[in-house]
């Protein structure tokens, strides 16, 4: 029985790693540049995105998950409505240089100019949903791998402030329309948050009132 267990472990170690390598194929510098350009071109023609999302926070130490869900609306250049419906209503609106947060009955107005943390959250969220984060070479070092039907872009922060919290951001781009299917934020603590987008509507008319800050 013990020999059998050892045999199974060795088989998993040998073939498991081969299988993983086969699934994720890092792109050469030239190929990665091509993908980056294509995503960047696609982002230029994306004027609006509307989608649902499911957010899963994985807590490494206690092996628990916190699941939230909602919808988001993005409109060029810098309009974003990020709205949680589950497990409780919570709304963030980024409108140019202002942020509005509604948590239950509490409303909060924040200026992006005076709040560095929110400025970075704004850049990461808008950059991630639009795909333009790939071009942010000032703040991230990027590598791209080829998956079966997605490109996986791993962004390692260079900015000291972002590095304090995040060890990497991984974006999964759909190969058919080059939009982001999934976003994973790995924290320094070992926890990570996965945001999966569904029912994406690209370049549909989104009224400006959606982003109105009261």
């Amino acid at each position: 029985m013990r020999t059998f267990k050892v045999f199974i472990t060795v088989m998993i170690l040998c073939f498991g790693s081969t299988l993983l390598q086969a699934q994720t194929k890092p792109l050469s510098f030239a190929d990665a540049e091509d993908v980056r350009k294509t995503i960047s071109e696609s982002a230029k023609t994306t004027n609006s995105i509307e989608a649902g999302f499911t957010q899963t926070k994985e807590l490494s130490v206690i092996r628990e998950k916190i699941i939230s869900a909602g919808v988001f609306y993005f409109k060029k250049e810098k309009l974003l409505r990020w709205e949680y419906k589950e497990p409780f209503p919570y709304l963030i609106i980024f409108n140019s240089n202002k942020i509005y947060i509604k948590d239950d009955d509490k409303e909060n107005h924040i200026s992006l100019q005076s709040n560095k943390v929110f400025r970075e959250v704004n850049n990461i969220l808008i950059g991630a949903v639009q795909g333009t984060l790939l071009s942010d070479t000032k703040n991230f070092q990027c590598s791209i791998a080829d998956l079966h039907n997605q490109y996986q872009a791993t962004m390692v922060p260079l900015n000291a402030r972002i590095k304090e919290t995040l060890s990497e951001i991984i974006l999964y781009f759909n190969k058919s329309d080059y939009t982001v299917d999934k976003l994973v934020m790995r924290e320094v603590s070992g926890d990570y948050t996965r945001i999966e987008f569904s029912g994406k509507k690209i370049n549909q008319n989104i009224p400006d009132e959606i982003f109105f800050i009261p």
Binding site: Q55, K57, L59, V61, I62, E64, I66, S68, W82, Y84, Y90, I92, V121, L125, T165, L166, M185, E187, S189, D191, T193, I195
Partner: peptide
């Protein structure tokens, strides 16, 4: 007991 507190977007404040 284990206590973890994170913001809505998922970033951990306290663990």
């Amino acid at each position: 007991f284990h206590f973890t507190f994170a913001n809505e977007i998922g970033m951990t404040y306290l663990d």
